[in-house]
Measured scan of single mutants.
Amino acid sequence: MSGNGNAAATAEENSPKMRVIRVGTRKSQLARIQTDSVVATLKASYPGLQFEIIAMSTTGDKILDTALSKIGEKSLFTKELEHALEKNEVDLVVHSLKDLPTVLPPGFTIGAICKRENPHDAVVFHPKFVGKTLETLPEKSVVGTSSLRRAAQLQRKFPHLEFRSIRGNLNTRLRKLDEQQEFSAIILATAGLQRMGWHNRVGQILHPEECMYAVGQGALGVEVRAKDQDILDLVGVLHDPETLLRCIAERAFLRHLEGGCSVPVAVHTAMKDGQLYLTGGVWSLDGSDSIQETMQATIHVPAQHEDGPEDDPQLVGITARNIPRGPQLAAQNLGISLANLLLSKGAKNILDVARQLNDAH
């Protein structure tokens, strides 16, 4: 009898209710805020589980004197976190989706994509230029951005401005803007500013005609071990179906173009009346040469937790077992079709030249 009692006690200790789920994140304040929001949602869904947040620095956090596009290494903000995932030191990792490459290392998958916040870019102005827009900034004003995508589009749109690289986390960039006289304004992701509670610093939100956004911008991705079915089931509740389908289309477009950090590629997606609209573009580094096109596809946005595919093969690095396969494939095909259209119009040449120029500098 006593033996059975011990077995029952052991089973209770090993039951999922007692389990601590370890969540990996970057150390920056924004990353911690984003991770806290994901953990809060998981806690609400699984009140019996405990969650421990483990923060670590990544290569991208450490190399702050070089433009991201020049470092010449993929997975700048993800490699150390993936290493911890691989060694079973954490069970899942919360990322900004735009930091996750469209091809993940073997053994990993994006197990959830959370509801997207505003994906557009924002302009934050130096205190002396508050009330201005990019259009009304004085001639030769210097605007800071760490992104080739932003610089290429904005140089084309605002030729009277000069664009220079600015690195560091959000706090560091804002301090550089406010305390030094080098920059009249800087460009940042609206979602990051909003998550930090800095709505009052948003001086201008850039519309798609001015600057399309990065693939996955404004959404959070939760990376897990691809074979860890328990954790895949656990994080599945975080999937937002519309965000998922938009981001599958965007990531398929980028992957098929073979774009990345070192080339200016941008997108804009919208879901309306059962249609998914995808606009994508590529630019030369100075913005003088560009190709942009829009395509659409009829896609039914499923309700969360309709029964999805059981075999769960990944699409552009994403596993969404609780979302039907048909809409996911339709979104992926839309991204591939748009990429093929741009490639047929000469996108590869623009991107190759951009890559060579970026590598040469």
Rank of each mutant, 00 (worst) to 15 (best):
L97P: 01
L343E: 07
V130K: 07
L278A: 05
N169Y: 09
S288I: 14
T269A: 09
D312A: 12
T172E: 01
L315R: 04
L49H: 10
A297T: 12
I299G: 01
I248E: 01
L97D: 01
Q314L: 13
Y46W: 13
L104C: 09
D312G: 09
L338A: 15
P159Y: 06
K70H: 09
T136Y: 11
T133D: 13
S37W: 13
A270W: 07
P105Y: 03
V316G: 08
D286G: 07
H95I: 01
H160T: 13
V39I: 06
P119Y: 09
D36R: 07
R251S: 06
R251Y: 01
G317C: 14
L148V: 11
Y277E: 03
I166G: 04
E182D: 09
K62S: 11
L193C: 01
V237G: 05
V94C: 14
R26N: 01
R156H: 13
P264C: 01
Q314S: 05
Q50Y: 12
R32L: 08
E293L: 06
G260W: 05
A151F: 09
Q153C: 07
D311E: 14
V142K: 10
N333H: 14
G281A: 12
S96L: 01
D91E: 13
A266L: 03
V39P: 01
Q34Y: 03
I323P: 01
I110S: 01
V316D: 10
T298F: 06
G24S: 06
M212A: 01
T190Y: 07
A320N: 01
H199N: 14
H239R: 01
A44G: 11
D359L: 06
R246G: 10
A226S: 08
F129G: 08
S28Q: 01
T136R: 11
T298Y: 10
L161R: 01
E139S: 09
T294E: 01
F77W: 10
L220Q: 01
I186P: 01
V282L: 06
I336W: 13
S57L: 09
L238H: 01
A347F: 03
A185S: 06
S28L: 01
K176R: 11
T243A: 01
D352A: 12
S45H: 08
H239E: 05
Q34R: 01
T41Y: 10
G287K: 01
G308T: 08
L357K: 10
I323M: 05
R116Q: 05
D240P: 04
E139V: 08
Q304V: 01
E52C: 13
Q296H: 14
R355P: 15
F253G: 04
T59R: 08
P208T: 08
V39M: 07
R116Y: 04
V103D: 10
V38F: 05
G218K: 01
Q155E: 10
T172Q: 01
S28T: 13
R150V: 06
L254V: 11
D311R: 10
D61Y: 05
I33T: 12
H126R: 08
